[in-house]
Design a protein around this nucleic acid. Sequence first.
RNA 1: GGAGAGAUGGCUGAGUGGCCGAAAGCGGCAGAUUGCUAAUCUGUUAAGGUAAAUUUUUGCCUUCGCGGGUUCGAAUCCCGCUCUCUCCGCCA
Length: 442
Amino acid sequence: MHIGIQELPKNLEMLYFFHKGKVMLDIKLIRNNLEKVKKAIIAKHEKVNLEKILELDQLRRQKLTQVEDLKCERNKKNELISKAKQSGQDAPVAMEEMGKISDQIKALDAEVARIDAELESLMLWLPNIPADDVPEGTEEKNQVIRTWGEPKKKDFPAKPHWDLGKNLGLFELDRAAKLSGSSFSMFTGLGARLERALLNFMLDTHIREGYKEVAPPYLVNRKTITGTGQLPKLEDEMYYSAKDEFFLIPTSEVPLTNFYQDEIIPGELLPIYLTSATPCFRREAGASGKDTRGILRVHQFNKVEMVHFVAEDQSAASLEKLVHDAEGILQQLGLTYRVVLLATGDMSFSSAKTYDLELWAPGVERWLEVSSCSNCTDFQARRANIRYKMKGGKPKFVHTLNGSGVAIPRLMVAILENYQEADGHIKIPPVLVPYMGGVTVL
RNA sequence: GGAGAGAUGGCUGAGUGGCCGAAAGCGGCAGAUUGCUAAUCUGUUAAGGUAAAUUUUUGCCUUCGCGGGUUCGAAUCCCGCUCUCUCCGCCA
């Protein structure tokens, strides 16, 4: 009696697309840093059965040594038979013994496979461990690191972007709702052109800073989206095409980070910087009622993303570069923003340290999150199996970082609300004028 | 969608049932040698797991696209899947 992997329950089988015997979050790290892992689980509000993981880990190793001993015996017998056959003799006793051993191996192998699958399905729920310099606690422990510019009030009553957009014909939210439903946007006329201008301006800027532009797929498979850590936790947040088992990307972090999935990058190529402008698709499940007006929260939006691949001793510095590159966009656009260091409880599943960039919007009188820059350390690299190798060295997991540079809708809101004039028109920020074909006012 | 071909180590590529984890070549690394920006010779050259020991080793196991099956034994035979290429069809 043996259980093949195909007879596993569907949910386990789905998780077993990973390399055989490969465990994505280092089980040794868990064994050796139990307290840190526990703390991370609590900080990030996850529920993971650590005891079960440790128990399965132990059981797995126990079974593994058993089956390996048997395999060793089998190999020896096989050699015996092989030699006998080659000298024209027969080895009926050894052959019969080997048959018995093989049966035992099959049974044990199946058991190990089942344990592996269960272990992996549990381990996929373990979040990344926050870096030591991240403040502990929930949202209210977030720290404003610096502010650029001043959150000024207009010397006339500032209009919110939905009024500005409607008056100037920059977007058509009613018609977007007609086509798709609530929380969809549709830029029109010079509004659409402004979006295109922003995307091009941001991409061009990043390319100049050493990023390679990528135009990736927007539909990705389950393995890819598990690699970056959106799955299994955020399954309900994503649009999914069941017929083809594709997920619509919630951010281009997913295809960009998985660019080197299952690869060993030659060490001398690091650091590698990728950027792309893609749509992002988010169901925003559980967010209904929040930010319903205007385009602050929509199911589909465009975003320019930056991703870094670096050696482990470079990731802390790389995060600063990433934030700096995102800030550069906002500075060139002359927008007031602040940099916020997120507390452990406000960080995403995959992140060890995150800075948010928030733009000041005088119309809605709020700080708007337009960028989230995260150091994911080796967390995503383990899941996606991305390594690098220096000459003569052993392969190691890379560190991956990602940050928006930046997301369009809230950037658009900030531009419209900040650059509005008393007469209801909107000035185009000077850096965008060339991208607008010379248009200076909306 | 249909027909066919293929998938082997960093790369090229041999291997149709038994010391094949895998020939050979290239590339890489180390050494030797030659007076010249290179040649020649020699050696070496994967990843993962696990145990002992321990900071560097040693033993054992696994891995020839993925997953099953046949067999005492599978890179090799059979089945399913994925991907790549060629041709046909369809199509933005």
